[in-house]
Computed example of a mutant assay.
Amino acid sequence: MIRGLLLAMGLLAAAPALAGPPQRIVSMNLCSDQWVLEFAAPERIAAVTWLARDPRMSFHAVRAAAVPVNHGRTEELLRLQPDLILAGSYTTRATVRLLRQAGIAVEELDVPSTLEEVAAQARRLGTLLGAPEAGERFAARIEALPAPAPHPLRVAVLRPGGSAAGRGTLLESLVAAAGHESLSAPGRTRLDLEMLLRERPDAIVTALDGDAPPAEATLWLQHPALRHATLRPPSVLPGSLWICAGPGNPEAVALLAALPSP
């Protein structure tokens, strides 16, 4: 069915080289949404994903409200007639393959795990989207983040479901950039109540706020054992600042650096 649609639209061809900055940009990944909304003018954005309008996950949710959205369906993306599509390295492989068979330029973004990699991705995307100066400015902003906090804390970052900021992740890199130590260990993907009581971190940070759906992490934070242990109430680090490598990361570092000392 999809191949027939491609033939009918005359799209089964080699991907053309872009003669200049792309004029009909489509993003099919939440994280590429953020870069597109950061660097491209609204009139050059054919669509971002519907997730880009969710402020719980998207740093640029307000900007996303002013541009069309897509749901990642191949036929839908083809009808947008994009000259560039941005996808993530985990985006559906079959869809990416079909889009390339249709002659559309598809760029895949990897998943940065350090701020140095975030800066490199900003430079790459700024150039690709026709805004190299903006990409360079953002990269320079990442590289000029303030010195780490003078009194480093042991921080337990509690993600939805109780998962932790594991070693080698961007979230741990953000904690380190703020001058703190993330309470995690190689191979550990979860924090539990017993570990929090045993390790007694200086600060607990959660991505959950009052509007978040019920999650195991929420229940832990309400457990009377934490109150009796006199652990500090958790601080909120909105997911929109760290779920993706991108524009929200400097603000995440600033919030983490501002955590009060015990």
Rank of each mutant, 00 (worst) to 15 (best):
Q34F: 04
Q34N: 10
Q34I: 00
W35D: 01
V36L: 06
L37D: 01
L37G: 04
L37A: 06
E38M: 10
E38T: 14
F39P: 07
A40K: 01
A41F: 03
A41V: 04
P42E: 05
E43Y: 09
R44G: 05
I45A: 05
I45R: 05
A46C: 07
A47G: 03
V48F: 00
T49S: 08
A52S: 14
A52W: 09
A52K: 07
D54Y: 08
P55A: 07
M57S: 10
F59A: 03
H60K: 02
H60E: 01
A61Q: 09
V62R: 15
V62D: 13
R63Q: 15
R63M: 06
A66C: 06
V67Y: 07
N70M: 04
N70H: 11
N70W: 09
N70V: 01
N70L: 03
N70R: 10
G72Q: 06
E75M: 01
E75Y: 04
L78R: 02
L78V: 01
L78Q: 00
R79Y: 00
R79D: 06
L80R: 05
L80C: 06
Q81C: 05
D83T: 10
D83S: 07
L84A: 06
G88R: 07
G88N: 00
S89F: 12
A94N: 12
T95S: 13
V96N: 00
V96Y: 00
L99Y: 01
R100N: 00
R100K: 15
G103L: 10
I104W: 00
A105R: 14
V106M: 09
E107Q: 11
E107H: 15
E108T: 13
L109R: 00
V111M: 10
P112D: 08
P112M: 03
P112K: 01
S113A: 14
T114D: 08
T114K: 05
L115Y: 09
E116Y: 01
E116Q: 13
E117D: 07
V118W: 11
A119H: 05
A119Q: 09
Q121R: 12
A122K: 08
R123C: 06
R124A: 14
L125I: 10
L125Y: 10
L125Q: 13
L125H: 08
L125M: 15
G126E: 10
T127L: 13
L129I: 08
L129S: 10
L129G: 01
G130H: 15
G130R: 15
G130F: 15
A131H: 14
P132W: 12
A134V: 14
G135P: 14
G135I: 13
G135T: 14
G135Y: 14
R137C: 13
F138Q: 12
A140T: 15
A140I: 09
R141I: 07
R141F: 04
I142V: 15
I142S: 08
I142K: 05
I142C: 06
E143L: 11
L145W: 14
L145V: 11
L145C: 08
A147Y: 09
A147K: 13
P150G: 09
P150W: 11
P152K: 11
P152R: 11
L153C: 02
R154Y: 00
V155M: 07
V157F: 08
L158P: 06
L158M: 13
L158T: 02
R159G: 10
R159D: 03
P160M: 00
P160F: 03
G161M: 02
G161C: 11
G161I: 08
G161R: 03
G162Q: 13
S163G: 07
S163V: 13
A164G: 04
A164L: 11
A165L: 08
G166F: 03
G166Y: 01
L170K: 04
L170I: 07
